[in-house]
Computed example of a mutant assay.
Amino acid sequence: MSQHQILSTEPKPFVKWAGGKRQLIQTIDRHIPVQFGTYFEPFLGGGAVLLHLLGKNPEMKCRVSDLNSDLVLSYVTIRDRVEELITSLQTHAKNYHKNPDSYYYGVRESEPKSQIEKVSRLLFLNRTCFNGLYRVNSKGKFNVPLGRYSNPNIVNEENLLSVSRVLQSKKIQIICRDFAAVLSDAKKGDFVYFDPPYQPVSKTASFTSYTNKDFTYEDLANLVDVSEKLSDKDCKVLHSNSNSKEVRDLFSKEWKIVEVAANRSINSDSTKRTGQKELLIKNY
């Protein structure tokens, strides 16, 4: 594949992550400020919004972070060592196609120590597990069963090269840290996008366990507090969250709340997947 072909593909998320924003990207795009200084995204996840913005403006200054160290390691590895990662994924793909079941569960049980193998395992499991969703149990173990895919795209070389290329900008920092750290870095005119694990809309919908520390109501209240302080510093702040009373009630009248249609595929019951609304909340 020529360099030119690679350059022509817009980078897309390389993992499917709980609450991923790929389906909503056009809607969110309409609410991105026209001008801003540095872009901050403290719950990076699959990075749909970051990659979309970089696809349009590769020179954008960014400081993005996540508390999931395995995920941050994946971004750094794709940026710095993508060729080695692709080779490792090609090996996984070859072995998987020989015997999907036993190979999948063998990899799921494994605990590789090297950077390449750790990231390769995460991407392999993400591509082949049920519903393609990364999720760990209370002991921090990945526990999702094998998915039934006839031909999963395990390597996805073109996209990995595209993501690697766009992340190599000297203007991007990728860090593993808590969301509150953004307060000391963001300055007037900067833009902060918060996409935290969503507050459950109902008692049964509490899907926040893609790291083994749940994001609680207290965490959300703290996040709103951080947002108010960012607002006082004249930062532009945008939130995504569920259409729940808790979320609406925590934000003061100064914030604009926009309802958007969301088609979430996270509910295992497909009849409950459609017609959901979620919120975009902003101070500009």
Rank of each mutant, 00 (worst) to 15 (best):
Q5E: 12
K12Q: 15
P13A: 11
P13C: 09
V15W: 00
K16G: 04
K16N: 06
K16I: 06
K16W: 02
A18G: 03
G19Y: 05
R22N: 13
L24R: 05
Q26I: 01
I32P: 01
I32V: 15
V34I: 14
G37L: 10
G37D: 12
F40C: 05
F40R: 08
E41D: 10
P42W: 07
F43G: 07
L44Q: 08
G45W: 03
G45A: 08
V49S: 05
L50V: 14
L50T: 12
H52M: 07
L53K: 06
K56D: 03
E59T: 15
M60N: 04
S69T: 12
D70S: 13
L71H: 03
L71A: 10
L73W: 04
S74N: 01
S74G: 15
I78G: 03
E83V: 02
E84S: 13
E84T: 03
I86H: 00
N95L: 14
N99T: 14
Y105D: 08
G106T: 15
V107S: 00
E109I: 03
E111P: 01
S114K: 00
S114T: 14
Q115R: 13
Q115Y: 03
Q115P: 00
V119H: 02
S120N: 05
L122N: 03
N126D: 08
T128N: 05
L133F: 06
Y134P: 09
R135K: 14
N137I: 03
S138F: 02
F142R: 12
N143S: 13
P145W: 10
N153M: 06
E158F: 07
L160T: 07
L160G: 08
L161A: 01
S162F: 05
S162P: 01
V163C: 07
S164G: 12
S164N: 02
S164F: 07
R165H: 13
V166I: 15
K170I: 11
I172K: 12
I174T: 01
I175G: 00
D178M: 00
F179I: 04
A180F: 06
K188I: 00
D190S: 10
Y193G: 06
P196S: 06
Q199I: 11
S202P: 01
S206A: 12
K213S: 11
T216V: 11
T216H: 02
T216W: 05
Y217A: 14
Y217D: 14
L220N: 13
L223A: 14
S227F: 02
S231R: 13
D232T: 12
D232W: 06
K233M: 14
C235T: 09
V237T: 06
L238G: 06
S240Q: 11
N243R: 11
S244Q: 14
K245W: 04
E246F: 15
D249W: 06
L250E: 12
L250W: 11
L250N: 13
L250T: 09
K253S: 15
K253D: 15
W255G: 05
K256G: 09
I257E: 07
S265V: 12
I266C: 04
S268Y: 10
S268R: 08
D269F: 06
D269S: 12
G275P: 05
E278F: 11
I281R: 05
I281D: 08
K282V: 03
